[in-house]
């Protein structure tokens, strides 16, 4: 009986955060505009990969648009040239991202964190050039590839209908969060964190740091490619702009904004960033400048990001209020 109770309490402690996030997201899906929520959910998946790289491995990558583009273009190639089923297209995009990460990873993860950041940026520049100029006959260059009307409806949740796509995106984002939460509790998760803290010591214990980094790199960038594939299906269109190096800092900024290494950070960051863009661009002409200042302000005030700052601050406030109430009773 006690064992069953302990198991139930462990399961509850494991799931309550996920369940609460899912509930809050579902509520937002009902209350907020569908296009906004779709963008938030896909962006959250995109940032999750970056968050894993920074938060667990300590590797900042300014090349995430490249992995996003790999996923998006693989999906687009399938849906434009081969088939019409978006679910198969999604699978092709993820597979493309996985293969890309397996090929690129062994070269990149050997590098130090600062070189890693730069070499990834270089990859994004190369890929942007390839999609924009070099392979115009296949990628359509700046015109991109349109396949919105070519996609067939899918059973259960029709991915061609934005309202149903949103529920699919929520399910995928939840699955990605569950996967990262599960990884956090495994030896592999501990190894990733240990690799960030002190890679030499990890080797003293008997772990091959290279293999740990490589697997983490593959996981993170396959998730990024998944986001790219979802963008492609949602918009029914891809263009080189999606993988533009000028947007390289975006996932890093949103990771920092949400709270590096926290599970809810990518979702919170994506909400805050997309929300700020949506609201402020409606009110102000030069909204990019304003958002830039706002981000600098938020990071100065809350250097742990929103999710890394607000819950501890709320807990501290609660403790303070309880103490004050206790003093008043006495």
């Amino acid at each position: 009986m006690t064992a069953a109770k302990s198991l139930a309490s462990r399961a509850l402690s494991w799931w309550w955060g996920i369940a609460a996030t899912l509930l809050a997201t579902s509520l937002c899906a009902v209350l907020l505009p569908t296009p906004f929520m779709n963008e938030v959910m896909i962006f959250a998946i995109y940032v999750s990969g970056c968050n894993f790289l920074i938060g667990r491995l300590g590797f900042i990558s300014f090349g995430q648009p490249a992995y996003l583009a790999i996923g998006a273009y693989c999906t687009a190639f399938y849906l434009f040239y081969v088939g019409t089923n978006p679910l198969v297209g999604l699978g092709v995009g993820v597979l493309g991202g996985l293969l890309g990460a397996i090929i690129i990873g062994p070269f990149f993860v050997r590098l130090r964190s600062d070189y890693f950041a730069m070499v990834n940026l270089a990859l994004a520049v190369v890929l942007f050039y390839v999609t924009q100029k070099l392979l115009v006959s296949i990628t359509g260059g700046d015109n991109g590839l349109w396949f919105l009307t070519q996609m067939q409806s899918t059973p259960l949740l029709d991915l061609t209908a934005p309202a149903q796509f949103l529920w699919f995106a929520i399910i995928v984002a939840t699955a990605v969060t569950v996967m990262f939460k599960y990884l956090d509790g495994t030896i592999f998760g501990a190894c990733c964190l240990a690799s960030r803290l002190n890679e030499d010591k990890l080797q003293f214990i008997g772990y091959d740091n290279f293999k740990i980094r490589l697997v983490a790199f593959i996981i993170a960038n396959t998730v990024t490619a998944l986001a790219g594939a979802m963008y492609a299906i949602y918009f029914g269109f891809v263009s080189p702009e999606m993988g533009s190096p000028s947007r390289a800092a975006e996932p890093v900024i949103v990771t920092l904004l949400g709270g590096v290494g926290t599970l809810a950070g990518p979702l919170i960051g994506a909400f805050a960033y997309t929300g700020m863009k949506d609201v402020i661009s409606n009110l102000i002409g030069n909204w990019e400048l304003f958002i830039g200042f706002l981000l600098v302000f938020i990071m100065l005030v809350a250097d742990q990001g929103i999710w890394g700052t607000l819950p501890p601050a709320a807990r501290a406030l609660l403790v303070h209020l309880r103490r004050a109430a206790g003093r008043a009773r006495n």
């Binding site: 501990a190 964190l193 091959d208």
Partner: peptide
Amino acid sequence: LAPYDVAKSGVKYVPQDKKVFYDL
């Protein structure tokens, strides 16, 4: 041999700085 292979062979090193994995 790589350091992790030396460790696996049964020769373990405890460094001086006492820096454990502090977040774990």
